[in-house]
């Protein structure tokens, strides 16, 4: 069977690293390249982090840096400590400096140009896995209109049917660039949203995190230690047993669709300025009569998702 060609867009980021772990262990995927964007950290930082994680896991693909800010949003000042320190000040749980400086350089092309080149040259339609603010993907849709029909589907982590994590009803990836989210979600490209409704069901507890170290060589050890701070944050702030691996979910779905339960709804992103800007407004009762434009992961199988990580890390033992 031919491998599934995939483009990844990330803001590495601890849970982005976990998504890359799943990818590295999957033999049915052909990764064409990775674009990075601001989000968990500055675009400069997420680019370096991505290169480091790729080298740690032996993923050898071109990486290009993309947007440093949302389409209309103000630039976030990453030089100051972030208000809510989720991923550590370095984006890798404050132990990114234990990884060697990457040998590979970033692509000379900007993110959307590299993406366009790889997608144009790929004989099959490409699946995009996006685990960050959707700025690069929206820019691609806007600036390469003749290539959008070469995209098989977009699997993105972001949004929530109910709830939020940076505001009461706004999830971070959507809230960091609501206009980009609007552009992607209202495009004709098939897409699946992996929002907080499903991701929050899947925390990795400490016992499971330590199992990565015990069974996963230096990759497992790094991920276990990097996630310590992140895991504690979820325990302290959310009262959950451990680290919520949001970004892993779209990748896990690509590998094994049975990991989530999917429903389809009419969804639009709220763009009016106010407490709800960036909310993925979902018509769960189908009141609007609008067409369903988005598949949404409504729940996830925690045991299955965690096992996928523990199995994936074993290849580094």
């Amino acid at each position: 069977m031919a491998k599934t060609p995939v483009w990844m867009d990330v803001d590495t980021g601890l849970d982005d690293a976990m998504a890359l772990l799943l990818l590295s262990a999957c033999e049915d995927i052909e990764l064409l390249g990775i674009s990075t964007v601001f989000g968990n950290q500055s675009v400069e930082r997420t680019a370096v982090n991505t290169l480091k994680i790729c080298e740690l896991m032996g993923i050898d693909v071109s990486v290009a840096a993309g947007a440093s800010k949302g389409i209309l949003e103000e630039q976030i000042d990453y030089s100051k400590p972030l208000a809510l320190d989720v991923h550590g000040q370095d984006g890798l749980g404050n132990i990114g400096n234990t990884l060697p400086e990457p040998n590979k350089k970033l692509s000379d092309l900007c993110a959307v140009d590299l993406m366009a080149e790889k997608i144009r040259n790929c004989p099959d339609k490409v699946t995009i896995v996006a685990t960050a603010p959707l700025t690069n993907i929206a820019t691609f849709i806007l600036t390469y209109p003749d290539l959008t029909d070469r995209i098989e589907k977009i699997l993105f982590m972001g949004g929530a049917v109910f709830g939020g994590n940076i505001k009461p009803s706004v999830e971070a990836n959507m809230g960091h660039d609501p206009e980009a989210a609007y552009i992607v979600i209202s495009s004709d490209i098939p897409k699946v949203m992996f929002g907080l409704d499903a991701t929050m069901m899947c925390p990795m507890n400490d016992q499971e995190r330590f199992a990565m170290r015990d069974n996963g060589g230096k990759v497992g050890a790094f991920l276990c230690d990097a996630l310590q701070h992140y895991s504690k944050l979820y325990q302290d702030l959310a009262g959950l047993p451990g680290a919520v691996l949001h970004d892993s979910l779209p990748m896990a779905y690509l590998i094994d669709p049975s990991v989530v339960e999917i429903k389809e709804f009419p969804v639009e992103v709220e763009l009016s300025n106010g407490i709800t800007k960036g909310c993925t407004v979902t018509d769960t009762w189908y009141r609007s009569g609008k067409e369903n434009n988005l598949k949404v992961a409504m729940s996830a199988d925690r045991e299955k998702l965690i096992k996928m990580h523990l199995d994936a890390v074993k290849r580094y033992a």
Binding site: V112, D113, L142
Partner: peptide, 8 residues
């Protein structure tokens, strides 16, 4: 605007 988005 699209030129700016690609190349600030």
């Amino acid at each position: 605007a699209l030129a700016v988005l690609k190349h600030p």
